[in-house]
């Protein structure tokens, strides 16, 4: 039997919830951060940088580096590693400053 983190701690999670990420539905476990839900789905990057448009995702994992910024339910610049996934959340990959709506 393959080892995995859930098996290691004998996890018996509550029923999975689902979030919308970039138009597709991803499962998440209650209490997981958005970053954890994305990692579980094999998604490692969800943001591009302002200048170089380079892909970024979670780095420090504890809310310090702000590399994992993401738009949650329309609010940009949320730290994916800290924000808990909630059922029905709409999570959008973020480009640059994430505030293109203000440019007019």
């Amino acid at each position: 039997m393959p080892r995995d983190p859930a098996g290691l701690v004998r996890s018996r999670p509550q029923p999975a919830i689902s979030i919308d990420y970039a138009g597709s539905t991803l499962p998440a476990l209650p209490g997981q951060s958005i970053a954890a839900a994305l990692w579980a789905a094999g998604v490692l990057s969800w943001r591009t940088t302002r200048d170089g448009r380079r892909p970024r995702g979670a780095f420090c994992g504890i809310g310090v580096c702000f590399d994992c910024l993401i738009t949650v339910n329309g609010r940009p610049n949320q730290r994916a590693c800290l924000v808990p996934a909630r059922d029905g959340d709409t999570v959008t990959p973020q480009e640059g400053h994430g505030r293109a709506d203000l440019a007019r």
Binding site: A6, L29, P30, G31, Q32, P84
Partner: peptide, 9 residues
């Protein structure tokens, strides 16, 4: 883990 993940160990 958060309680929702049901980690028993």
């Amino acid at each position: 883990p958060a309680p929702g993940l049901g980690a028993r160990r």
